[in-house]
């Protein structure tokens, strides 16, 4: 799992550098958290979410613990869905990722408000961001399945 976290983090950084971290960005670590949870269950999902969030929080500016708690919750919630849908159900993956990332984004704004951190709330951007990530999610799911099959 540690290899997955570090590899995911490096790719995440590279994606952010080339695609941008705004509405058009792909949050690979969050997608990996959701999909690992869907494939492997709550335990690995929450652990991956916790450690990937911690690594990102430590190495980037912003609120420490924000990504840690949100991804842990995300991993736990998505892990609860394991086995409740057929593996090839791309539509389910899309909608679940979309809803989870919308909740993740709003929660992130909420945490920033609570801790007095700067934030930007644009519902259009959140929807676009979530939809983009939801579109990529089935691909990440397939990759996770492939990695774990090995």
């Amino acid at each position: 799992m540690s290899v997955l976290i570090v590899t995911g983090f490096i790719i995440h950084i590279l994606l952010h550098r080339h695609l941008g971290s705004g509405a058009a960005g792909i949050n690979l670590l969050t997608l990996m958290t959701i999909n690992i949870a869907l494939v492997r269950g709550k335990g690995q999902g929450q652990s991956f979410g916790f450690f990937s969030g911690l690594l990102e929080d430590l190495l980037t500016a912003g609120l420490l613990g924000e990504r840690v708690i949100l991804r842990t919750l995300l991993g736990f919630t998505a892990g609860g869905m394991k086995g409740k849908f057929s593996e090839g159900n791309v539509v389910f993956q899309f909608f679940m990722t979309f809803i989870l990332i919308v909740i993740y984004s709003f929660s992130s704004v909420l945490l920033r408000i609570i801790f007095g951190e700067p934030y930007t709330l644009s519902i259009g951007s959140i929807i676009l961001y979530s939809a983009l990530n939801a579109l990529v999610s089935p691909v990440v799911y397939k990759i996770i399945i492939f990695i774990y099959a090995r």
Partner: peptide, 15 residues
Amino acid sequence: FWVLIVLSGLFLLSN
């Protein structure tokens, strides 16, 4: 999960 949540909360409070 609860351990991780408590740790995350501690990280948040550390701010």
